[in-house]
């Protein structure tokens, strides 16, 4: 799992049926200080997040099957939690 910031929303009409009715966002992974880190991902929202939110993304392969109760779910990246607060101390 990784921390990310929701940056954009993806609109589409032709899609796999597992995606219908679920918001799809572009998320930018960030480090705990909020700095962007690495490549963007496309993620399916599971918790009702919006643009600008800091979220927890990820998921093991095939986990979307259990989460959404689908037989076939070609979903790799899920938005699983909206972050309220991060408390951490970096080690040097």
């Amino acid at each position: 799992m990784f921390l990310a910031k929701v940056s954009k929303i993806v609109h589409s009409t032709a899609k796999h049926e597992a995606y219908s009715g679920k918001p799809v966002f572009i998320v930018q992974p960030i480090d705990p200080n909020g700095e962007p880190k690495g490549d963007e991902w496309v993620a399916v929202d599971y918790v009702g997040s919006g643009i600008g939110d800091i979220v927890v993304c990820g998921g093991a392969p095939g986990v979307a099957k259990d989460v959404f109760g689908l037989d076939l779910a070609p979903i790799r990246t899920l938005i699983m939690a909206i972050v309220d607060h991060i408390d951490y101390r970096d080690i040097d």
């Binding site: 609109h11 796999h16 799809v24 076939l72």
Partner: peptide, 25 residues
């Protein structure tokens, strides 16, 4: 997860198209 895009869920693929994007903003 690419194999899940097929109706059978059983195909030797490493990547699959799942969505055609209309717009991003």
């Amino acid at each position: 997860d690419a194999t899940q895009a097929f109706d059978s869920g059983f195909a030797p693929v490493n990547a699959s198209v799942v969505e055609l994007v209309d717009s991003i903003y």
